[in-house]
Amino acid sequence: MQLKDLFAKKKKYASIPSEQAKKDVPEGLMQKCDSCQKIYYQKEWKKNLYVCPNCGRHHQITSHERIQHLFDENTFVEWDKELLSGNPLDFPQYEEKIEKDRVKTGLNEAVVTGEGLIKGKPCAVAVMDSRFRMGSMGSVVGEKITRAIENAREKKIPVIVFAASGGARMQEGILSLMQMAKTSIAIQRLHKENGLFISVMTNPTTGGVSASFASIGDYNFAEPGALIGFAGRRIIEQTIREKLPSDFQTAEFQLTHGQVDKVIPRQEMRDTLATILEIHQLGGVADETSS
């Protein structure tokens, strides 16, 4: 473990609206839906968890906002917050890119892990954040997810992973690819002890993350409209020399093709997860006390 003076720097928290958003609507006050273009007050938008009240489009939500919505108040404890990426391949400009995203998001890496209570039921969670390097999985993301699964196994609590990732982190090369194996072995160890693993695929869940832990939950869930798939649309179109339908690789497409158990709107996520956790907590024994 290395300690670099770089890390002594104070963290900056800043929210930077996209260039497009700045142009279209008054900064920080209004928000426009990407899909139906309807404009909302920021407050209303946030309260609705970034889901358009008009058309139902699910927009990006930060990892911390998701956690805040999901867990009972003041129950979430974060794990391994201080794990930071190195530059194992000495890849050109990698450190600069990481630093830029740290400043932009206030996060140290593309996943937040920890434990807390969902309607009183304990569970571990890993929430990926696509604002950080497209949510790509490098050594730190792999390590944090692996540790979260291992912690859940040892504590005998369920683990829920919210995937939001473009895939492997190219700048960490083969080490990034091997995180697919590492996380999958952790899942295997959890399964062997009958631990519960719930995968929730959010926009986007593609490439190496889709082809590892995200697809092998005891339950595979998805948020409406999320892009979910292995290969990129453009690569497939180039390979097969035909245009793909617009719904290709959406959550609904994966539901139709048997890869997803259920598509769950963001507003219903907490309730649905709580119900599943409750049923699993009973473990086959009737509980007269709960209704």
Binding site: I185, S210, A211, S212, S215, G229, F230, A231, G232, F248
Partner: peptide
């Protein structure tokens, strides 16, 4: 690489690979 095709996606390329990783581990 795994084939990047339409049919491969429809039949769960991701799941097929992911399952192998997990099962091989055990």
């Amino acid at each position: 690489g795994a084939y990047p095709g339409k049919a491969a996606e429809e039949r769960g390329q991701s799941e097929a690979i992911a399952r192998n990783l997990m099962e091989m581990a055990g």
